[in-house]
Simulated scan of single mutants.
Amino acid sequence: MLKRLLAGWLGLALMVVSSLACAEPAHYKIVTGPERGTYIQIGQDLSKWVAQPVGIDLEVMASKGSAENVQRMRFEPGVKLALVQSDVYQAYIDMANAGNADAGTAIRPLRLIMPLYDEEINVVVRADSPLKTFADIKDKSISVGLIGSGTAQSATTLYHLMFGQAIPEQNIQHLSNEDALAALIVKKVDVAIIVVGQPAKLFNDMNPELLQQIRLLKVDPAAPETARAKQTYFPATIRATSYPNWLKEDVPTLTVKAFLVTYDYGLRDTVGNLNHFADSLCANFDNLQEHGHPKWKQVKLELPTLVRGWKYYAPVEKHLRACLANKSAAISATAAQAAPKPRSTCSDQERLLLLCK
């Protein structure tokens, strides 16, 4: 039953795909993150497994990160999709609500397609550093990431939550992830904060000898600083299996959620193309999880209730919810078919007299 239901739904999706195969492709862009980060790989997966099957030529654009992506999503021609961290999105909303007109102009027309996965906060120090936990970074010199990156927003927000103050200006540096690690090794900074989904090429592509010169700080669950940080961020683990050439054990940390974002488009062609993208996302979700970046295995095809000020893109939401309903119905039908039949309540005498039905 499940196979028939899914085959019918997927058949309909394939009809849409085939009908678009001969059409002139739409040329769209998605803004992601640094070249060796996770965002750009997620964008490449979306381009290959979701956009291409429905005739969308989705160009994957590198960027500094989330804050830049919000601006480019809003103002750069051709950019129809973006990857944005939840704390960056919320920071724009908070500033808009506080009266910042530029923040309102940037964020209010943006809409969410769906939540993706958690990105781990990597707090990196030298291997010989005396620092042990996140709570030890107060008053240290810190690279927080490039201005315009999601890392910079996360790092500064995290510090403010933990210590009730901003990072002192003389202690802050805005370096790229690669430059931050280099500066760390040569002792130009004490700490490098890097927000990236595991496993990250940034670390796995590093020279093994250089990797042995750095290590990760742990989150202390009992520290008051951790309790304050959990107002915005969530506990997680950086697994040793993600970095077998570096980590000897799992490292407790904090995470921030990544979202796939678009604009509140109203033009018929754009709405239609994004609806096809949504159908393809649902139809090819298994391919993303099987063939895409390992982070796809953490993504759930669902649309949870949003916090105040956040909105889904209505046309895509309608298509995704229809897809989810179809899948749920198929699963329910299969479960009902597979449910064990109730045990007979017949007595032995009734069975002998052939009275049981």
Rank of each mutant, 00 (worst) to 15 (best):
G164E: 04
T151G: 03
I194Y: 01
V17F: 15
T253M: 09
V125R: 04
R215K: 13
K327N: 12
L131E: 04
A182F: 00
N207P: 04
G55H: 00
K138D: 07
I42D: 00
L110H: 09
Q41F: 10
L352Q: 15
A26F: 10
L355H: 12
P235R: 08
T232I: 13
K201E: 15
K318V: 12
L181P: 00
V271L: 12
A229Y: 08
A200D: 10
S242D: 15
P235C: 05
L6P: 05
P304R: 10
V17K: 15
G65H: 00
L12V: 12
P130C: 05
I93T: 00
A183T: 02
T32R: 07
E68H: 06
D57Y: 10
L5M: 06
P53E: 03
A182L: 06
I30L: 02
G164M: 06
Q198Y: 05
L46H: 08
N245K: 13
I93L: 10
I40M: 04
A62G: 15
D45R: 11
L83E: 06
L247V: 07
V84S: 04
Q85S: 13
L46D: 08
L158Q: 00
D205Q: 12
L288E: 09
A236Q: 14
Q298C: 05
Q213W: 07
M95K: 14
A106K: 11
D136F: 00
S19W: 12
A278D: 09
Q231H: 06
D94K: 10
K218Q: 13
A229T: 02
Y39C: 11
H293E: 04
A258S: 15
H319L: 12
L184K: 03
L10T: 10
A325M: 05
D128L: 01
L281I: 05
Y92Q: 02
L175R: 01
S47V: 02
R351A: 09
A103E: 07
Q213N: 09
L12H: 14
R308L: 06
C22H: 13
I121F: 02
F203M: 01
H27Y: 12
P25T: 07
S143H: 02
A23S: 13
V307T: 14
D139N: 08
Y243S: 06
G292L: 02
I42N: 01
R215I: 07
R343N: 05
T241V: 13
A333V: 07
I238K: 04
N122F: 13
M1L: 14
Y313G: 08
L81Y: 02
S47I: 03
W310V: 10
M61G: 07
Q52R: 15
S18G: 12
A336Q: 13
A183C: 03
A96F: 04
T232G: 03
T133V: 11
T255H: 07
L20R: 14
Q85M: 12
P235N: 09
M73R: 14
Q71R: 15
Q231A: 11
A106E: 08
F203P: 01
G309W: 10
D136V: 06
A335F: 11
G104M: 10
L320P: 03
G272I: 00
D264H: 01
